[in-house]
Computed example of a mutant assay.
Amino acid sequence: MTGPAATGPASAPGEPAAAPVRRDAEATKAAILRAARYFLVRRAQADVTLKAVAERAGVSPPLVLKYFGNKDALFARVMSFDADADALLNAPLAGLGRHMVRYVLAAQRDQGTDPLLRIAFAPLHGDQGDILRANFRAQVTERLAGRLTGPGAGPRAELAVAALVGLGVMYGIARGTHLRATDIDTIADLYGPLVQAQLTPGG
């Protein structure tokens, strides 16, 4: 089942009209969430309008309301790390470090979003930032700690995630030229063992 058509780019006079771009409901919701994430790491939630989110997603504001109900509900979804954590942690523990490094880089390269980097902008969001921090702890670091064995699982999980957040900053915000010119599998081979050392120390 397809959702409402999104308007394509305007045509110049004398040119054939551009065909409307049609998206199914899941693709439309994903585009809206990507747009909301884009703004979440650039300005305070209170300063983001549904109109701005809709324009970036290429949909109408009523369509945002149709899928998410209101602005608070939309940003509650954006402030959850559940879906990203499912993918981030979806590997056997013995190879999880490399998997997580590769997932962070592939998400930035292919989707233009980082699964973890929203947490760096929690101070922008006042009380909502506390929700972001609580979600991050419960859905990412504590969930990872629950998979680890041996002493110090909590600190080790936080150090592993810190390494991933730092990588995301260098790749996506500082836009390190050497990193961005390097194949992500090569980076995963180089950086994965650093993360893995916290997950399975001595192993």
Rank of each mutant, 00 (worst) to 15 (best):
M1K: 04
T2R: 13
A5R: 13
T7Y: 03
G8M: 07
A10M: 11
S11I: 04
A12M: 09
A12D: 10
G14N: 09
E15V: 04
A19I: 05
V21A: 14
R22Q: 14
T28F: 03
K29L: 10
L33K: 04
L33G: 02
F39V: 02
L40A: 15
V41R: 14
V41Q: 08
R43C: 08
A44C: 04
A44S: 15
D47W: 00
D47F: 01
D47R: 05
S60Q: 14
P61H: 07
K66A: 11
K71T: 03
D72G: 06
A73K: 13
A73S: 15
A73T: 06
L74G: 01
F75P: 05
F81V: 02
D82N: 11
D86W: 00
A87N: 02
N90V: 00
N90S: 15
A91G: 07
G95L: 07
G95V: 13
R98A: 14
V101I: 03
Q108K: 00
R109S: 12
Q111W: 07
G112T: 04
T113K: 01
T113F: 09
T113S: 08
D114Q: 01
D114A: 10
P115N: 10
I119C: 03
A120N: 08
A120L: 14
L124K: 02
H125V: 06
D130K: 14
D130L: 15
D130P: 00
R133W: 10
R133M: 14
A134Y: 07
R137M: 11
R137F: 11
Q139M: 11
T141I: 05
E142D: 15
R143E: 12
A145N: 00
G146E: 13
G146C: 11
G152Y: 06
G152P: 01
A153I: 08
G154I: 13
A157L: 07
L164C: 10
G168V: 06
V169P: 01
I173A: 12
R175G: 07
R175A: 15
G176D: 15
T177Y: 00
L179I: 06
A181R: 14
T182W: 03
D185T: 11
D185C: 09
D185S: 13
I187H: 03
L190V: 12
Y191A: 15
V195L: 06
A197I: 06
L199E: 09
P201L: 05
G202N: 05
G202M: 10
G202H: 09
G203V: 08
